[in-house]
């Protein structure tokens, strides 16, 4: 454990060094990513100039939800880089062989070998929006809420990680260049609006199949004082643990398949 922690900090320090060696490049990446994040709010911003509320959700509540969803996503994206290009870089180009030749878990190596520092802008943007909305709504934030905030953000990041790991692992079986990661990445949008606007089927899907609801909507309802989903809120750690285990199992199976089919 200690060794792994040391390794992560080393990987991270290395990567930060490489990245900051090209300062202008990093600044452009940071601000263009931030622009992307802000533009993502555009739809809701424009929409609410025409309508007072979405179902029974006010502008501030919708914004709070959207903002909150960005915080775990930002943390996840710091380490998600390798997952997007996994099939291209590791399977097709054969870098995965190198990963297999080292006495450290393959999952650990793939996840922590590359960082995307600029993704922290999502955390910053999300936290700002959440803060502003909370103030406008005069939400009371006690110590207990703060605790749950940290826990749910961590769980949210873990859920994103689990979902995308499972999808990434698919490339152990199918050698397609892009695969199915981008489509599901686009599905992140769904968790950014109140789950109640969707029909039962989609609500079910976003809870139990691609559980983005547990990363965004269910935590938010708690902080907004909506009690209808209390049960789901308490299930967050359970769902997180379940999907994390599932992701690890699928990944390991994928590695085993890679070893038996090879290239």
């Amino acid at each position: 454990m200690k060794r792994h922690w040391r390794l992560v900090t080393r990987y991270f320090a290395q990567y930060a060094k490489v990245r900051l060696a090209y300062k202008a490049d990093f600044i452009i990446a940071f601000f263009s990513s931030m622009a992307a994040t802000v533009l993502g709010f555009g739809f809701a911003l424009v929409l609410f100039t025409k309508i007072p509320r979405l179902q029974d959700w006010t502008f501030d509540e919708v914004m709070f939800l959207y903002g909150f969803s960005l915080i775990p996503l930002g943390f996840f994206n710091v380490v998600s880089w390798n997952l997007y290009d996994f099939s291209e870089l590791y399977i097709i180009e054969g870098r995965f062989d190198r990963v297999l030749l080292r006495p450290v878990s393959t999952l650990f190596q793939v996840v922590f070998e590359k960082f995307r520092l600029e993704s922290l802008q999502e955390v910053v943007t999300g936290a700002l929006v959440v803060g502003i909305c909370a103030r406008r709504m005069r939400l009371e934030f006690g110590l207990g809420d703060l605790f749950w905030f940290v826990v749910t953000v961590a769980c949210g990041a873990a859920i994103y990680m689990a979902v995308f790991l499972i999808l990434t692992a698919v490339s152990f079986w199918f050698e397609d260049r892009v695969g199915i990661v981008p489509p599901v990445f686009n599905m992140l949008n769904f968790g950014r609006y109140p789950l109640t606007i969707y029909n039962v089927f989609i609500q079910f899907m976003l809870s139990w199949i691609i559980p983005f609801g547990f990363a965004t909507f269910y935590p938010t309802t708690h902080f907004l004082g909506r009690s209808a989903f209390t049960l789901y809120f308490h299930l967050i750690p359970v769902v997180t643990a379940g999907f994390t285990v599932l992701a690890i199992v699928v990944w390991n199976r994928g590695v085993a398949n890679y070893s038996s089919t090879g290239t």
Binding site: F26, I28, S32
Partner: peptide
Amino acid sequence: LQSILGLLRAKFFLLELFSGLLLPMTF
């Protein structure tokens, strides 16, 4: 640039919003 991922994402959201894909320009 070392990585144009950020730029691509910004372009993606820019086109999505300002092309009128998400809502008509009159909104």
